[in-house]
């Protein structure tokens, strides 16, 4: 007769991820598998799962907890029946972005891109787009931390093509 006392069979497998700065994170397997980059690491190599440490070269440990939190919550949202009300998802997403600087947001976009997870990447890129809506060119440059490398003549020509789009915007 099967015993229900075996706790080891119901225990969720954990996978160890190593952030770029060397810090280790123990993550439940289904959460780790949200990341295509981690998933592909194990393709054809399933037995090795327990012992191996997956190096995540482009992800800072600063952002790992928030990113893992996003995966855990969103996979729970997806599985839940009936689906969660839109307000609940919206509230989580807004709280996720709160207090994140533009710089942190961009770093997380780079991380999501490296981890190859569409849902997180879509969410973060949309957040970035929202932050530059109805803003001046100077603001957008500061947002991305980029330099203006157009010659004055080039820039004047670009602006003249659609002069209407460049006046009277939010500088801050």
């Amino acid at each position: 007769m099967a015993s229900s006392s075996s706790s080891s069979s119901t225990q969720v497998k954990k996978i160890t991820l190593k952030a770029a700065d060397g810090k280790h994170f123990e993550v439940e397997e289904p959460v780790a598998m949200e990341m295509e980059t981690v998933k592909s690491f194990f393709v054809g190599n399933e037995d090795a799962m327990k012992d191996m440490v997956v190096p995540l070269l482009n992800v800072s440990s600063e952002h790992m907890p928030a990113i893992l939190d996003f995966y855990r919550n969103h996979s729970e949202f997806r599985k839940r029946t009936p689906p969660p009300p839109a307000e609940e998802v919206k509230a989580f997403n807004e709280a996720f972005l709160e207090n994140k600087s533009d710089e942190q947001l961009m770093e997380m976009i780079m991380a999501a891109n490296f981890l190859n997870t569409k849902e997180l990447l879509n969410f973060l890129t949309e957040a970035a787009a929202n932050r530059i809506k109805n803003k001046s060119v100077e603001y957008v440059r500061a947002f991305f931390g980029i330099e203006n490398d157009f010659t004055p003549e080039e820039e004047a020509r670009i602006r003249a093509e659609n002069e209407w789009a460049f006046d009277g915007l939010d500088e801050d």
Binding site: I132, K135, V137, F144, I158, N162, F166
Partner: peptide, 13 residues
């Protein structure tokens, strides 16, 4: 208009 301003930030973009 947001798209046009994005294009006007730098050569790479």
């Amino acid at each position: 208009s947001d798209y046009l301003r994005f294009q006007a930030t730098c050569r790479r973009f």
